[in-house]
Design a protein around this nucleic acid. Structure first.
Lengths: 229, 229
DNA sequence: CGTCCAGAGTGAACTCCTTCATAGGTGCCT
DNA sequence: AGGCACCTATGAAGGAGTTCACTCTGGACG
């Protein structure tokens, strides 16, 4: 039955793990299970929705699109995480697109149920504050990079971040599943520049490419990012 | 007595206005009143403090400094507002400097008292979420500007934002008290470029300068920002 | 009311990055 | 396997912005 499905998915979120079954049931009643096929827009910039999404499975990207068709990626998210929480509290239009990169399953929570949800699970409020804080920190780091560092530096930082996450998850410091175009959108530069930077890094021995996989020397990369400022 | 002073300052914050006196007293007991002279650092990047500040009077700027001495301003804040709230929840180092632009008075709340404060005043949690959401939106707009728009566009946006705030507060769409250098740090460009843009805007009739004051034609400026993308 | 200095204006050189163009690679799909 | 769509590589030209160098100006303060 649907409620049971929702409850089982809920418990995979750290913030709900270990909650009494009664609480989960109360929460589940407020949530709607939804599926989105690869490539579809879950949220569009300037929408006026007030729904927050818990990402249950799959991968989404949070991106900005310019009037001339340029794209800037803010983030790639994987389950378990959540997005769209800003509209729970203020009534502003959505500030970015969220696109399903793979097929995606989500649980949707509407703003009108937020206070009730927080009463059931106060940790939710702190989780939201913590997530938003993290977003602010990441964005500040991003702005800092755009203002102070050149394109090569930003591309290196993207490679380092992705490879570090991969290393922590699977023990291999590799960048895969990202095209040069996607790396460029994450670094805020052009595809060609990203390509040139990767080529140069191979020549410098900081990364090695195996087909479309980029293996990163985490230590050397960190060293370089710290030193040449 | 100090507690009474704190309580009277507290009530100027919208989030506490109308709270029972008992609640304010409980909150006041957790807060410390502090003063900072013009020019002093209230928060420094990479600090490990876990204090949030309620800005009671004065003006602060939130800025980033690069290794080469370049500066990027994230925000100018005036009372009543607050800053440093991110460190209440995560244990990360401070991600920016906060500098007193005028003499400043603040009330400090330490992280260890946060849960208690939220129990006394649950609206505090929602206020924090709302503030952080606003910050995220502003930062996204910033990143978008840096990625998609040229320096002239960003300078115009700064002028428009400042003049609009001035118009709403005092009925005059004017930029004053900001040097070209400060405008440049807000726009993420060099002093020279900001200066050239202002000169050009005067020639184009979008702004008029009276000594060191810049009077902005809000309508024309908005028009221009929307159109030439 | 003159002096002095932070701030403002502007040309010129140079740098980095985008954009355009074109060739070569990779891997998936039937 | 073959083919096709997408991805990668790299040169060359051009533009936007920084940096440097210098001059001019507003207004604070003695």
């Amino acid at each position: 039955m649907m409620q049971d499905l929702i409850i089982s998915r809920l418990s995979s979120f750290p913030m709900f793990a270990g909650s009494p079954v009664g609480d989960l049931e109360a929460l589940a009643a407020m949530l709607t299970f939804k599926q989105y096929p690869k490539g579809s827009f879950i949220i569009s910039q300037n929408d006026r929705g007030s729904t927050m999404y818990l990402l249950v499975s799959g991968r989404v990207k949070v991106t900005l699109a310019s009037a001339e068709g340029k794209e800037l990626a803010l983030n790639y998210l994987e389950a378990p995480s959540h997005f769209g929480e800003m509209s729970l509290v203020d009534a502003e239009p959505r500030s970015a697109d969220v696109v399903a990169v793979t097929d995606v399953e989500v649980l949707a929570l509407d703003a009108k149920d937020l206070s009730a949800a927080i009463e059931v699970q106060p940790r939710l409020a702190l989780t939201l504050i913590a997530t938003l804080s993290l977003r602010v920190r990441e964005l500040i780091a991003r702005v800092e990079d755009m203002a102070f560092h050149d394109a090569a530096h930003r591309v290196m930082r993207v490679l380092l971040n992705v490879a570090t996450a991969s290393y922590e998850a699977r023990g291999i410091p590799v960048v895969e599943g990202l095209t040069h175009y996607e790396i460029a959108t994450l670094a805020g530069t052009s595809r060609e520049t990203a390509s040139r930077v990767v080529s140069q890094l191979v020549r410098d021995g900081l990364v090695a490419t195996k087909g479309r996989r980029i293996v990163v020397d985490l230590f050397a990369m960190r060293e370089r990012l710290e030193h040449d400022v």
